[in-house]
Computed example of a mutant assay.
Amino acid sequence: MFTVEERDRFRKRLLARAEADDTVVGAAFTGSYADHEGDRWSDTDLVLAVRGDLTPTLDRWTGWLYDDLGARHHWDLSVGAGVIRVFLLPGWLELDLTFAPETEFGPRGPQWRTVFGRPRPLEPFAPPDADTLTGLLWHHALHARACIERGRWWQAEHWISALRDHVITLACLHLDLPSAHAKGAHLLPDDLSAELATTLVRSLAAEELHRALTAVVAAARTELAHSRPELATRLTPMLAELTNTPVT
Rank of each mutant, 00 (worst) to 15 (best):
A171C: 08
W61Y: 09
R221I: 12
A34P: 08
K183S: 13
A218E: 15
G184W: 03
A218I: 05
P101I: 08
F29T: 02
T98R: 14
R152A: 13
E149S: 09
A171F: 10
G82A: 08
A218Y: 03
W112K: 03
S32I: 05
E157L: 02
T132V: 07
H139S: 14
H36G: 14
P229C: 12
V25T: 11
G52K: 01
R202F: 01
V47K: 10
P189H: 01
D67A: 15
A206R: 14
P90H: 13
A206Y: 04
L14Q: 06
V86T: 09
A218L: 11
L163T: 03
W138G: 09
C172R: 00
L170K: 03
T199N: 10
L14H: 09
A218K: 13
K183G: 08
H139C: 10
F125H: 07
T57M: 09
W41V: 00
W92K: 12
L137K: 13
T245V: 12
V25E: 08
D43Y: 05
R150S: 11
L175H: 04
P229D: 12
G80I: 08
D68F: 05
L69R: 08
G151P: 07
A49D: 02
R85F: 04
H139L: 14
A225W: 11
Y33E: 10
V24H: 06
E6K: 11
V167G: 03
L209C: 04
L58D: 07
P246C: 11
V79W: 02
A130C: 06
R51T: 00
E195F: 06
L88Q: 13
R234C: 13
T243W: 08
L54E: 03
A130Q: 09
V47D: 11
F29M: 04
R118D: 06
A215Q: 13
E241W: 11
L231R: 13
G38K: 00
P128Y: 07
D68M: 05
R145K: 14
T214H: 03
D191K: 04
R202A: 10
L170T: 02
V4Y: 02
L213H: 05
L137I: 15
R152S: 12
L213C: 02
D129T: 01
R234I: 13
E94S: 11
E195S: 14
Y66R: 14
E5Y: 00
S227T: 15
L173C: 04
D131N: 00
L122A: 00
H139G: 14
P189W: 05
W154D: 09
L204S: 05
G184L: 04
E208W: 00
F10S: 00
A215H: 14
T3Y: 05
E230K: 14
G31T: 01
R51V: 00
R17W: 15
G117Y: 05
E223H: 03
P90Q: 12
A194I: 05
R221S: 11
A197R: 12
A225K: 15
R72F: 07
H139Q: 14
G82I: 07
A81W: 02
L170F: 04
G184T: 03
A194W: 06
G106I: 02
R234Y: 14
L175M: 07
T236E: 15
L142G: 13
L196M: 11
E123L: 15
P90S: 13
A156F: 00
L213R: 01
M1Q: 07
T132I: 07
T214W: 02
R13N: 10
V83H: 06
T134I: 12
A16E: 15
W159A: 01
A27R: 02
E241M: 12
